[in-house]
């Protein structure tokens, strides 16, 4: 009798494990998370979308997790072919139709399972903490990726530790210089103009870019200008250069004074 009890408990446990697994085996194919994808979306869901569209023959681009124009046209074409409303947005209906059309799809894990893992581990792949590093610049209208990258590096090197507005202002100063006839007319030309930015000469420009610096550059490119048109800035505690001190001050943000 004493031996029978552990055996019974083991049997009960095994039964419980099997019955808890059973619904998962019977459930339909899990695909995507509940989020709606549209032009500009990024992440694992988009990766799955691109991958499935590719499998179905609607998409010929890279599986990069960025919902760009190529993905947009592919979604529209898919919607058109399947008699759906053509809007280029991958909502619940489009995702369900696509999942049904690509049952044979075997990814490295659906976005839904990735999200489930994220919820379990408490780690997010799209963390936006200031320390997240960027290996590639985002695609933003109005500027090339290489210029975005260069700008973000300069902001990281020149304005690390400054408030976010100060970082946007530093990026804005460079963009103003590109437009000004007094300075070179490319981002690289402005940044590497001899003596213009200390970060370009002391190697600080090569420090890794974090998400905050990249967001500051995007803000400046999009037209937010806390410097109010400044062409120069300096740290009053670190320079006694007469020229910069002689410029009319526009505003002060963090440790930097921005001037005309």
């Amino acid at each position: 009798m004493k031996k029978a009890l552990p055996r019974f408990l083991m049997l009960l446990l095994s039964f419980a494990m099997i019955s808890s697994a059973a619904p998962a085996l019977d459930s339909p194919v899990r695909a995507f998370t509940a989020s709606v994808m549209r032009h500009g979306s990024t992440g694992a869901n988009v990766r799955e979308l691109q991958s499935r569209l590719k499998l179905a023959g609607f998409y010929g681009g890279k599986i990069d997790g960025v919902f760009g124009w190529r993905t947009y046209w592919a979604v529209r074409l898919f919607q058109y072919r399947f008699g759906m409303k053509v809007d280029g947005v991958a909502g619940a209906k489009t995702k369900a139709k696509l999942a049904a059309a690509t049952k044979s799809w075997h990814g490295s894990g659906t976005a839904a399972t990735t999200a489930a893992t994220t919820a379990k581990t408490g780690r997010s792949t799209s963390s936006t903490s200031g320390k997240q590093m960027f290996t590639a610049a985002p695609s933003v209208s109005g500027i090339t990726k290489s210029d975005m990258n260069l700008l973000a590096h300069l902001v990281a090197g020149e304005a690390r530790g400054e408030p976010f507005q100060g970082q946007v202002a530093v990026a804005a100063v460079i963009l103003h210089r590109v437009k000004s006839p007094k300075f070179p007319n490319t981002v690289a030309g402005v940044i590497y103009q001899p003596g213009a930015f200390s970060a370009a000469t002391n190697g600080q420009i090569n420090v890794p870019v974090n998400s905050q610096a990249m967001a500051a550059v995007v803000d400046a490119v999009k037209g937010w200008d806390p410097s109010h048109g400044a062409l120069y800035y300096f740290n009053p505690a670190k320079t006694n250069n007469r020229f910069v001190w002689s410029r009319p001050e526009i505003t002060k943000i963090g440790h930097h004074i921005f001037t005309m």
Partner: peptide, 11 residues
Amino acid sequence: DAYQLGNIGYF
């Protein structure tokens, strides 16, 4: 135009 950068959406 639209772009997502982490928890920010630019439109």
